[in-house]
Design a protein around this nucleic acid. Sequence first.
DNA 1: AAATTTTCCGTGTTCGTACACGAATTGAAA
DNA 2: TTTCAATTCGTGTACGAACACGGAAAATTT
Lengths: 349, 349
Amino acid sequence: MRKNIRIKDIALKAGVSIGTVDRVLHKRGEVSTKTKTRIQQIIDELDYRPNLLASSLASKKSIVFATLMPRSSSLDTYWSKPQNGVEKAMGQLRAYGVKLQQYFFDMDDSRSFSSQGEKLLLDAPDAVLLAPWAKREALRLTKQLDEREIPYIYIDANLEETNPIGFVAQSPFDSGFLAAKLIDWGVKERSLILLIHVAKELDNASHLIKRERGFMRYFEEMKSHHRIVKLEVSGKEDEINSHLNKLGIDPCDVSGVFVTNSKVHLAAACFKALCITPKIIGYDLIPQNIALLKDGKIDFLICQKPELQGYRAIHLLFDSLVKKEIIKRENYTSIDLITKENIDFYNSI
Amino acid sequence: MRKNIRIKDIALKAGVSIGTVDRVLHKRGEVSTKTKTRIQQIIDELDYRPNLLASSLASKKSIVFATLMPRSSSLDTYWSKPQNGVEKAMGQLRAYGVKLQQYFFDMDDSRSFSSQGEKLLLDAPDAVLLAPWAKREALRLTKQLDEREIPYIYIDANLEETNPIGFVAQSPFDSGFLAAKLIDWGVKERSLILLIHVAKELDNASHLIKRERGFMRYFEEMKSHHRIVKLEVSGKEDEINSHLNKLGIDPCDVSGVFVTNSKVHLAAACFKALCITPKIIGYDLIPQNIALLKDGKIDFLICQKPELQGYRAIHLLFDSLVKKEIIKRENYTSIDLITKENIDFYNSI
DNA sequence: AAATTTTCCGTGTTCGTACACGAATTGAAA
DNA sequence: TTTCAATTCGTGTACGAACACGGAAAATTT
């Protein structure tokens, strides 16, 4: 059993009081350069690590994290998941004096992102976790955060032009690539494959585009001879059918379907209604998808681990701000394949 | 910001000293029944939760966990993984005064399991994490642990007839079932599929049998028309080839291969040498398998999350012993599908 | 040389809990 | 009544780090 090094031990070894060591550790108050370097040397030598327990017990000041995420309405159960992860992490960190301040915006209203962002800024948190939804508004907010030197971290996606201390997300390109491999593995040669985007504004959802790129790239690399047809729908009833009709495609000829987001249940329901069972792949373990997966109408769901994203992002903020560790900028979550057979064992965190 | 309830607050409200409250909380020392019930009532009413930080800071006595796992030799890199998970968990819990005592046994020598078990018992740890490898010896050890009232938890597998406080493992049946689904998804109808056990003593590896059962069950349920051939080999060079020869099977006719453990690289190497590429599925992210996966010679690896098993088991012990929480007995890890395309994003914990 | 400022650093208290110690009270046996 | 043990309860201090306070020494000004 190796004993932990305490401030006291350092003080003893340096022949000074613990107060002086404390000043060196926290760059607070005046210490002569001579003693400072001597103490610093001993700190390095002994590889001193502060006892987080004692530290947070003693310090009365608490650190505040803020989150800015989409409000999880009953319509969208996805965003309740990162929320759960955040709460789980906070449950562990509350004891260390970390507080949480949450702000929610309306996904259909980019102004609400801004207004909630304003509120957040007024409360001056020590760090921010945010889902960069509306790009323009997010850019404005992060600029303000940069000015105030408030560190921030993303979940769900990265925003290239900004300076977060990190992001936690799945690689959209590679998830699309994997989806293609699975489709390819499951269909015969020279099949008809659909790629479906279900989104209101495709240009505001750059990760859908990246997933598409990954998907297409696979077939390019494999020089496969499938016929791939791209559909863009907004999510209304029977839209897929009418689109196929317009293109002169008989749904019965479709062997594989890839939906680039969680709306895959729309496509699955459509084919279910027609009593056709192409191979269908989509994203996210939301209830509608899970039901269709268990029913055998969806073959694979790619899980983004949203709970884990929230959980890990909070922990990264903690590691960075409290533990003063250097954290990785890129934190990719795994690309998990969920099927009827393994979903019951799936641990979201 | 709601303030946390402290012992002091309870003492104040009850009109006693904190010492008395402490005695009620820990059932230590004598307190008159009258004050005891009054204090207990206030504790319940205020929903007091002890501050784990302060608690473990103040208490000097440390709790000792012991582990008994296979020694991870250079030949077997698998068992270094749970080991890593254990170490990671301990890194977090050391601050709470938890100590670790490790014992390793030789996988080829069941007597070493017993002898290390003896040593473990002598050191009288507060709780034990063990991999129930040699069944008979494990039964003996757990009986002794039961007598001494030392709680224990399993990783890797469960041992039905014993009384662990829990186990962390993958469901072997369901992983086999999933493997079958994948094979079925990837091969044509009426294909020839191999099921290969690579093991020295199959009867000591009951989970391989369970994986086989899951695999076979899928095809029974699907009423599929594949021809499934079972092979049992011990792991020597060219054994698979000669077995196929004996059975009069041309390797070129094989469309799918399922190996029930991490020795899948032997099968993959065999077919690679023959320049045939059936669909191959096996278990575990050990280096040989990873290399063949990336090379495209193995299609899927089922990951048991060995790191997570070690990590979670330690945390479960902590939750049970220190936090006094009631933990789940059955802790199944997810059945993760790893392919060439997603392995680089795979987080083992 | 005296007065003042600046630099430097030790002491003491605090956080919430655990526990040793000692003191007071009670009850029963001798 | 004395003796002794058992019961009941408060105090003090330890744990490791944070930080306020203020004293001593050195540097600077008057």
